[in-house]
Amino acid sequence: MIDPVTLIVALIIVSTPVLLAAIGELVVEKTGVLNLGVEGMMIIGAVTGFITAVETGSVTLAFLAGMAGGMILSAVFGVLTQLLLSNQVATGLALTLFGIGLAALLGVGYPGSSLPPVPDLFPASMQAIPVAGPILFSHPLIIYLAVLLVVAVWFLLQHTRTGLVIRAVGESHDAAHALGYKVIRIRFLAILFGGACAGLGGAFLSVARVQNWIEGMTAGAGWIALALVVFASWKPWRVLLGAWLFGGISALQLRLQAAEVNVPVALLDSSPYLVTIIVLVLISSDRARAALNAPAALGKVFHASG
């Protein structure tokens, strides 16, 4: 009744914007910074990406512009929280409100504009392979990049010296500072990386998935990304799992409804949130270990004194 192949294809597409934003935020939080402005950076990425796609006709430039848009907004957050030592929670929330409003302003006149098609990475002959074709080969480049990014972030954090420094800054900025690491510079770079990822996720949403600019189109995806990072206890693989779970259940519940399966719709509708949270809570149920993984300096203001 439900075609598993189209389900998996839908899962991958639905989960990608959230995955991109979440993996960026994970790195930001690993350096001890809590940026609640993910939603705002995503929607700025969505609008700058869309405008660029319409004006230049280039999808590549559109995605780059989405990243740039997210980065610029995140730089505002970086200046306020890292240089002017403002409160991270309040600044992040303000960033989201500002981003949504600014995006609406920038996007006036653009809804409904026609876009260049987003090319698939692999040729049509490979997409024609039964089962594997649609699932593995029918996507644009960004989808593969998103998964590669998870691998890269995991490798960076676990197996490189840079990763060690990032984690040190996130655990104890005073100790890292005492060792001579540039806490503010590292955090600022992480914030920019998070902005670029969120912006790319937003651009994917407007340019590839919905193929339109509509005000308020991220509709909470940034908040889901934030929640994913926490429930995944700051582990890249779990972020991937959580994003796929969320996307998979979202796609599945729609197909169950279309197939008229007799399950209460209210339950189906809330199931992506419920299942994702329950599964991620279960796999990180060892509280002591989960707490160990949370960056100890998360959200704390760093001021180099003494």
Binding site: T218, A219, S250, A251
Partner: peptide, 8 residues
């Protein structure tokens, strides 16, 4: 109103 959800 949720463009992504409506598209899905």
């Amino acid at each position: 109103f949720d463009p992504a959800a409506e598209a899905d």
